[in-house]
Every structure is written in C-alpha cells, then in structure tokens.
Design a protein around this nucleic acid. Sequence first.
DNA 1: ACAAAAGTGTTGAGAGTACACCCATGC
DNA 2: GCATGGGTGTACTCTCAACACTTTTGT
Lengths: 225, 225
Amino acid sequence: MPEETFYPKPSVTVDILVFTIKNSDLKILLIKRGLEPFKEMWAIPGGFTRIDESLELAAKRELEEETGIKEVYLEQLYTFGDVNRDPRGRVITIAYMALVNSEEIHLSAQTDAKDANWFSVSKIPKLAFDHNKIVDYALKRLKWKFEYTTVAFSLLPEKFTLTQLQELYETVFQKKLDKRNFRKKILSLNILEEEEIMTDVSHRPPQLYSLKKRIGDVVEIMKMN
Amino acid sequence: MPEETFYPKPSVTVDILVFTIKNSDLKILLIKRGLEPFKEMWAIPGGFTRIDESLELAAKRELEEETGIKEVYLEQLYTFGDVNRDPRGRVITIAYMALVNSEEIHLSAQTDAKDANWFSVSKIPKLAFDHNKIVDYALKRLKWKFEYTTVAFSLLPEKFTLTQLQELYETVFQKKLDKRNFRKKILSLNILEEEEIMTDVSHRPPQLYSLKKRIGDVVEIMKMN
DNA sequence: ACAAAAGTGTTGAGAGTACACCCATGC
DNA sequence: GCATGGGTGTACTCTCAACACTTTTGT
C-alpha cells in the first residue's frame, strides 16, 4: 500500500473515565450531552484531540476542563474504532482512565451541576454512543489494576490508615475482607512507611501510613476471587 | 468545547506486531521500508486505516497482506500518539499483536524476502519511528498474557505434547522449568483434553492434548518469577 | 462505664519447589 | 542394546483462609 495515497481521515477523540470514591461508593463522572446526537443523554466526558498535543495531554486537558484537577493517575485503556459507533461519521476514541481523590475535586464552573454528575458504578444509566461498553471495559481494568498494582493508593490521601485502605478494596470489589488477614498481607508487601499516629479521634488512634512505591507500580497486592 | 468546531485531523495507522516461534526462538516480523522517511530501515508492518473499516479489520487486512494468514489471535495493545513520532506529520498508530503458528505462514508474494524478515526478539535492530518502544511494550504484554491467559496455545498446533508446551514457555521466558512441576501444574488446571497418542516417533510415544478453553481465556497458567 | 474503631496470633489446608529415575519406541 | 525423548512421586516450605477478643481513646 503506497503511503503517499491520501485517505479520508477519521476524527479522533479522547474519552476520560474519571473514578473516585464518594460516600463509600465507587463513582464515575458523567456529563449530560447538550447537543445532538444523543442530546440530553449521559455520556463519558471527552473531546476532540488537537493536532499539536499528544493523546495523553489531550486527556489531561479535558480532565482539567471538567474537574479542575491537574495531578491524577491517568492511564490509557483502549481505543474504540468501530465504523458506526458515532452516527455523525467515522470517529475513533482513545479511552483513558483517571483516578482522583474526591477531596481534591471542584467540578468546573463552566460545567454546571446539572450537566455533570457522579454516578455509582452499580447504577450507570443508558449512555450515549458505545459508552456503556467503554465503562464496562474500564471497570474490568480498574479491578485488575487494584489486584496487581498500587493504583488504589491514588484514591487515598497521602497518609492513610489500613482501615481506609481495606474499605477501599471492599468498596471496589463489593466484598468483605478479614481484617487480620488483610493487614498481615499488606504489611508483608513492604510497600508502606509508618508515619505518625492520628490524633483527635474518639477511639483508639490509628497508625498512619504512606506508600513507599510509586502509584501504578506493579505489586501483587491482593487477589480477589 | 463546541463539537461542531473543525480541527485538523491526525492520520491514523495500525501497526501489527506479529510473533511466532521458529527454531525454538520467539520471532517478530519486520519489514524493510522502501520509502522515506527511514528508508531502508526495519519497521513494524502496518498501514493507514480506511474510513469504512474498523480498526480490528484494518489490522487483519494488513496482516493478511503481509503474511497471507487470516485466522490468528489478534489483540489490541496500545495507541501511540506523541506529536513528533512521525516526521511526516501528526500520525497516531494503534498497535496490535498477532500470534501465528509458523507452520501456517507464507510470507506474501508481494512482500519479497528481502523486504520482510523474522527477527529474534533478543536481536531487534534499531527500528524506524518509535517502533523499538512499541516492540518493548508488546513483549511485556506478551509475557503477561502468557502467564495469565491461554494465548500461548495459539502458537502451537491443534494437538500438541506437554513437552512442546513447556518448550514454548521456556523460550518466551528464557528460563528452564522443572518437567514434573510444569506437567503437574498444567494438568491441574483442567484446561486440556487428552487426544490420541502420537505414533512414528523413535522414542516413547507422547500423549497429545488439545485445549478445552478458547484462546485468550483468562486462566492463571504459570507465574514466572 | 460505654461507645467506637484499632489492633493482634494460631491453626489447618493447599500450592509451589526441589529433586532422580524408569519407560516405550525405532534403529 | 542403545539412543531418544516421555513420563512419574514425595517431602518440605510457604502462603492463604478461617476465626474472636483486647486495647485505646473521647465523651
């Protein structure tokens, strides 16, 4: 195939699946579409890539526009390129997953509350385009990553307790874990640094920890069967 | 960001990392570029996507053009979209990995032998564009998939011996494995069907097996440390 | 003193690892 | 009968899973 031949080019978008924990529940950020097609339906936030920015930068920019957040864990998920996934024409989209600590979020002023909302991943409505498929894919990947890497820690504050960490895993996997076994396992991995002890709590004060590794490093944290 | 705004579109290509086993060695198919830029350098086979075919179909088409093979294990790897990865302009590429059984390959007549060759993954030359980075990524993913899924079986014939399977893992991981432990582990997974016993071999005739599961199914085959 | 969450150990079962010899066939 | 790969078992270690009570603080 001669490379100089010109072909009509598809449009290229990035979609960002923003996850956070709110009210002990795993949530995803969705926006309400203001335009046809799928006007008024919920969709994954995203937008067209610009010619002079990398895909990752495009994802970061879109994320910042929606949430005001700059520093997050961001990971490319998959590229969806079926011919008819967008009725407007040929559009391929590169899906990214972002994990944000909900305390740091301020949904952008431009994006008023009616148009953007956090949805529990167990109650995702019917979405525009092939976005339900994309969310399903992201959830599978998220769980996989929780089992085999340190990404979970991106949803916790810098210093955290083992109970917070355990609750996070219980939330994501919808499964109760044994406290003693969980703590024994995590501590045996040697990935945590002891910090100070929390004060001003009306019960036995817990030990705070921080992560020695970098977010996303491969460590077999916990297999969930 | 208004969706009706027009942006210049990037070009979109697919690259296919074709792996096979030849001479007890893991090999990857590379082609020699006939055009600038990077003329005469080796590169990963690929080409531009067409407006009316899905990404997966584009990858399959390119693969068939190069190798004549239709039925293979094909998996999307990652999308590379740095701004300057192609000196001709903005080109993003979706990388696919294909695993082919070398007995079924007939490198296409169009692609004469001078222009396409199998390279041992331990001796990859300097490649065009960012293709070395892409190969590195693919190798990591390949190994990961060998550990946790049944993809390895796509490199074996329909019916195979446990020794063949073991040699395959030893080749990919460059590591000797204990025969007794390997067989015990594999058989305990309950993913193999006993077939007939091989005949016409000048030693004790081995048991043939076939795979009960589908290629790519998630099964923790063997952790390689 | 009581409420609330933190913290802690032992036992049994199953999986992984190390290791060496006999078996069935063709020539 | 010998060369060639095929096939097999046991003992030890380590990890995982099940399970309930005591500790520390604030009010």
